[in-house]
Write a protein that binds this DNA or RNA. Structure first.
Lengths: 176, 176
DNA sequence: CTTATATTTCAGAATATTCTGAAATTACAG
DNA sequence: CTGTAATTTCAGAATATTCTGAAATATAAG
């Protein structure tokens, strides 16, 4: 009934720690790690036991993961319980998280900068320096976003190719 | 004595919120925002008043920011107080944070994966599936790191150029 | 419909994090 | 030295987050 090896535990615990450093709760990260390394879909009861957490915590955390688009429900023949699984393609996972963080965090920041700059214009604010800084921040977000747009669509294999080119592309473009 | 406009407050508060979503304490992020938009170096006392926080909190938070390499001390002529300032180049800031997060979070994860895989080999672990997943995760980190290595050195203006190319580079490389 | 199983919700407990205030330490002017 | 200003430290308070357990709700088999 889902017995974790010490190696699997190690991986899951580490992933939990990582999560906390990125604003994701330990449990949510651990569940994701468990689903990632387990060969079959796992049900809530099994997660409860494997990670020694409350049933309700599993429920909430799974919802959170579903909110990120990282976990989906499946069903096992002859079993009424919901079973959960996550993606096996790490790049795809990464892409999803990027997209979601952009939506949740970058876009609102963009809006805030826009608002601040608009208000500054309206009030003929004489605070040149702050305006300069806000513009530079806006420029950063704009440029970073463009870079992101250009690569967001790349497949896993494309990334691997790009990584394998050893930087000559960028050198050729004289972007050193 | 460092009076914040409502726009400046808005920016600082937003930045504080953002911080919490990325595992950085509200205060630390707010102080960073304040230093970023303020035209002159700011001393601890001023931060205390401007953000309505305890003097000791300023001290600790500044230390944290210094730990990230984002804030440095300067001195104002005829004033014994330490004054603080941060970078004005957002890209440089971003680069520093990336580098530091890599060191603090990616490298340890790399090491953990290495350890897990080594242990698996030693114990002739028959858990093929988990091994596969760990290898794939390792591959992701390796490739992502290579991509990062290739761009970490790019200057701010190079990034802007790259962003301006509208993706034709990647298309030309048939990396769609 | 009844009953058993499964899931969700949510108030409050447990825990973790952040912040404060007082005391200790450091730095330096006189 | 001595005294004062500046900074740091850190125990515990305040706060925020996460987690639990019990109750409510949903689902479906009989």
């Amino acid at each position: 009934m889902l017995e974790l090896s010490s190696i699997q535990k190690k991986y899951i615990l580490h992933w939990g720690e990582m999560g906390t450093k990125w604003g994701i709760s330990r449990t949510v990260a651990q569940i994701h790690a468990l689903l990632y390394i387990w060969p079959e879909p796992v049900n809530a009861e099994e997660i409860t036991v494997a990670l020694s957490i409350a049933r309700s915590n599993v429920s909430m955390s799974i919802k959170e993961l579903q909110g990120w688009g990282l976990v989906k429900v499946t069903h096992v023949m002859g079993n009424r319980k919901d079973h959960f699984e996550t993606l096996t393609d790490v790049w795809e996972m990464f892409r999803i998280v990027m997209e979601e963080r952009k939506r949740r965090e970058v876009d609102p920041t963009f809006a805030m900068l826009e608002e601040c700059l608009a208000e500054m214009k309206k009030s003929r604010d004489s605070d040149k320096y702050t305006k300069e800084r806000l513009l530079e921040m806006q420029d950063f977000f704009t440029t970073a976003n463009k870079c992101y747009e250009q690569t967001r669509g790349l497949s896993t294999s494309s990334f691997r190719k790009l990584a394998g080119m050893g930087g000559w592309v960028l050198k050729a473009l004289k972007l050193g």
